[in-house]
Design a protein around this nucleic acid. Structure first.
Length: 208
DNA sequence: ACACGGATACTA
DNA sequence: AGTATCCGTGTC
């Protein structure tokens, strides 16, 4: 892989990046820029899920999730609809000590702001626009802003084609906290955030 | 605080 | 077919 190669005009993360364990991938994805067909932003919040022994992971109760891991390469997009309302974007992590997923929860918008705002506004009942802070500050919001939906399920995020991850130009301060919105295995500090970012969904609880 | 809403995986 | 659950969001 190409980590630690600071050449200019950086290219997308290669598959090898995702062939490690979920916690490592989650931590190192913070600060990367997620590029999605002209839109995107700096990854400021993710969560790790383990394929085994993690009661909050889909693999714990969903055979299709386990099948997905078996049938896809590392770096594949795992997209599903939650609460019948929002699509959520994960990336498959596979080939390291532990398999699993990383859920993308928030971006600091950097590109395609107009497109993202348009997608966020369409279908919205309320009239007034969203601030930059509210654009991608949650997994459902982020997916909607990027235009992610079920058609992206299984897509290879390491194959280019306008989609991929640019590594951070400089080191990023990362803090971690417990995961959000789950009832099981809720004590694990498997949520990773860009330290002090104003663009996260929920700020980490004080005292890290 | 609560409604919204659909895919998945159970029970029969 | 019917029910329970679910890694949110916006409005009530």
């Amino acid at each position: 892989m190409k980590r630690g190669a600071p050449e200019p005009g950086a290219s997308f993360l290669a598959r090898g990046f995702f062939e490690r364990d979920p916690l490592t991938c989650a931590r190192e994805l913070i600060g990367c820029e997620l590029v999605w067909n002209g839109a995107g932003g700096r990854v400021v919040e993710v969560e790790a899920y383990a394929a085994k022994g993690d009661e909050a992971s889909h693999t714990f109760v969903r055979p299709t999730a386990r099948k997905f891991i078996a049938e896809h390469e590392a770096g594949a997009a795992y997209v599903y609809m939650n609460y019948g309302v929002h699509w959520l974007l994960n990336v498959l992590v596979k080939g390291g000590a532990v398999n699993g997923f990383v859920l993308f929860r928030a971006l600091e918008p950097t590109r395609g702001l107009r497109e993202m705002e348009r997608r966020r506004l369409e279908g919205a009942r309320s009239a007034l626009g969203y601030s930059l802070h509210g654009l991608c500050s949650g997994p459902g919001k982020m997916a909607q802003a990027l235009g992610v939906d079920g058609r992206d399920h299984g897509r290879d995020l390491c194959a280019g084609g306008g989609i991929g991850f640019l590594p951070p130009a400089s080191p990023v301060a990362v803090e971690r906290d417990i995961r959000i919105g789950i009832s099981k295995a809720a004590h694990l500090k498997w949520r990773f955030l860009a330290k002090g970012s104003e663009f996260v969904s929920v700020r980490p609880r004080k005292k890290t």
